[in-house]
């Protein structure tokens, strides 16, 4: 794999994470528990779409095959998507949606902090812009996890169930990928060695306040980063891509 191919892969990983999570979050529109949450969810989805446009736009540019962010979004099939399995998990209840958001935000905030120091100017610039949005996402999802974990008996039980359910999808965030070694050596991508420890420290702090217990079983699903997804992604793409696929070449 050339350095350019590896960078294309990695940028798709970043862009697909935010694209697919944005899709999931936007499914809530009009159905949230309270108007303020409806607004906050739409706002989060909107930020994530903006990030997807930037990452996938850069990915397409690096690829140099005449594609753009829309072409990558609407004309790849699931095996070419590089998002974490975590973000394609169905929404479940509001608690599960916010738990998924928190687990992802905590990872994304750290990742962006590293990427903001990339030697690659465009990557550093996108990360520098996104990091401000994600700092807010993390504050909100963390506060909500604490509020619901430390709320009523029912809200506590639902949040613990959400954590138990999603925990096996977190390990994939930290799988070291040797495809990226050359990029790390070139200071385009940061070293990721301490990512897991720093993430675990952040989520442990929040879960302590939320009175939630991290599962002891460390089994972790993987496959998203190499294009082997869950059954859910295909359905999501059917919905997302329907107009572009049904009316090839149409301008919208």
């Amino acid at each position: 794999m050339t350095q350019r191919e590896a960078l294309f892969e990695f940028l798709q990983h970043l862009g697909d994470n935010t694209l697919i999570l944005s899709h999931r979050v936007s499914e809530w529109c009009g159905h949230a528990p309270v108007i303020e949450e409806d607004i906050a969810l739409a706002n989060t989805a909107l930020d994530l779409i903006g990030q997807a446009q930037m990452w996938l736009g850069l990915a397409a540019e690096i690829e140099g095959a005449g594609r753009d962010a829309d072409a990558l979004t609407y004309h790849r099939d699931s095996w070419d998507f590089r998002n974490l399995l975590l973000v394609e998990r169905p929404n479940g209840d509001f608690g599960k949606t916010l738990m998924r958001q928190f687990l992802f935000d905590a990872w994304q905030a750290l990742m962006l902090e590293k990427l903001a120091r990339s030697e690659h100017k465009q990557i550093a610039a996108i990360a520098g812009k996104a990091i401000k949005e994600v700092a807010y996402h993390l504050e909100r999802s963390g506060d909500t996890v604490i509020g619901l974990g430390d709320g009523t008996e029912e809200s506590h039980a639902r949040m613990q169930a959400a954590l138990d359910d999603l925990w096996p999808y977190c390990g994939e965030m930290f799988n070291l990928d040797e495809r990226y070694n050359a990029l790390i050596l070139a200071n385009i991508l940061p070293r990721m060695d301490d990512l897991r420890a720093r993430w675990l420290s952040k989520v442990t702090d929040i879960f302590d306040d939320a009175t939630l217990v991290i599962p002891t079983d460390n089994f972790a699903h993987s496959g998203g980063k190499s294009g082997r997804h869950t059954e859910h992604l295909g359905h999501l793409l059917c919905e997302m891509q329907v107009l572009q696929r049904s009316y090839p070449g149409a301008k919208w």
Binding site: A32, P33, G147
Partner: peptide
């Protein structure tokens, strides 16, 4: 509204 009751109750309790 009904599905969200536990969320509103939980946040208020907290």
């Amino acid at each position: 509204w009904e599905d969200g009751a536990w969320v509103r109750d939980g946040l208020m309790a907290h």
